[in-house]
Structure formats: structure tokens, C-alpha cells
């Protein structure tokens, strides 16, 4: 499973970097959304998958899946939500001000 997941994570990263390199600001934001999925899965995968029950002591399982990456990822999910929201609104405002979503056209002038 870990090998499979590693490949999947690689694909996520490839796709999101490809999106980052495009001209449209929307694609860049979609890329950042996808890359956060990649990071979350990477964190979970690196510690090993399905090493025991869910980390709930009430289940009284013999072994538990590593809870620490899960706590990290939970934090990361919420933060990436905040970041995505911020990026989205920034794109929205940029479009309102400049009437374009093309990053090439949004470049600052040379004398700045």
C-alpha cells in the first residue's frame, strides 16, 4: 500500500507543479489545493499505513495507527483551508481590480 501511495503522491505533486507553472491564476490556486492533499497523504504514508486500529483508546485495540501524523495533518488541513480561502479571495480581488486573471498580464512594470 505504501508503495502505491508513494506513486499516487508523486502524481499529485507532478500535477500540482504543472498547474503552478500555468498562466491562469485559477489554475495556480487549484494546484495549491491539490498539493496540500499531496502533503497530507505524504505525512500519513511516511509513518506507515494501517499499523493498527484507529487511534481511539476506547476501541481497546492491540495496536494503534500512529496518531502524531494525524494530529499534524488535521492542523494542516485547516490551515490549508485558510490559505486556499485567502488565495481565492486574493485572485478575486485581483480580477476585480485589473480585469484579468492572466499572470503574465499582472506583472509589475520594470521600474517598480
Amino acid at each position: 500500500m505504501e508503495v502505491l501511495m508513494s506513486v499516487v503522491i508523486g502524481i499529485i505533486f507532478s500535477v500540482s507543479i504543472y498547474l503552478f507553472l500555468s498562466k491562469s491564476i485559477i489554475r495556480v490556486i487549484l494546484g495549491s489545493l491539490l498539493i496540500s492533499h499531496g502533503v497530507h497523504l505524504l505525512l500519513i504514508t511516511m509513518s506507515g499505513l494501517q499499523r493498527g486500529g484507529p487511534p481511539l483508546l476506547g476501541l481497546e485495540a492491540e495496536a494503534y495507527t500512529d496518531p502524531l501524523p494525524q494530529a499534524l495533518v488535521l492542523t494542516a488541513i485547516v490551515i490549508s483551508f485558510g490559505v486556499t480561502a485567502f488565495l481565492l479571495v486574493m485572485a478575486y480581488r485581483t480580477f476585480k481590480e485589473h480585469k484579468t486573471d492572466n499572470l503574465e498580464e499582472l506583472r509589475g512594470s520594470a521600474d517598480e
Binding site: E2, S6, G10, I11, F13, S14, I17, Y18
Partner: peptide, 24 residues
């Protein structure tokens, strides 16, 4: 663009695999 993104993806895959292997 394609080369860079694929290279990045491959690198992440390798890192992930090696990290897991190291851990186990």
C-alpha cells in the same frame, strides 16, 4: 513545464519511499 513537474513528482515519490523504508 512537464519535465520540471514530473521530476518533482518522481523526487517526492522517492523521498516518500525512502523515508518509509528508513522508518521500517
Amino acid at each position: 513545464n512537464l519535465i520540471i513537474s514530473v521530476a518533482f513528482g518522481v523526487m517526492i515519490t522517492l523521498v516518500s519511499l525512502s523515508a518509509f523504508a528508513f522508518g521500517s
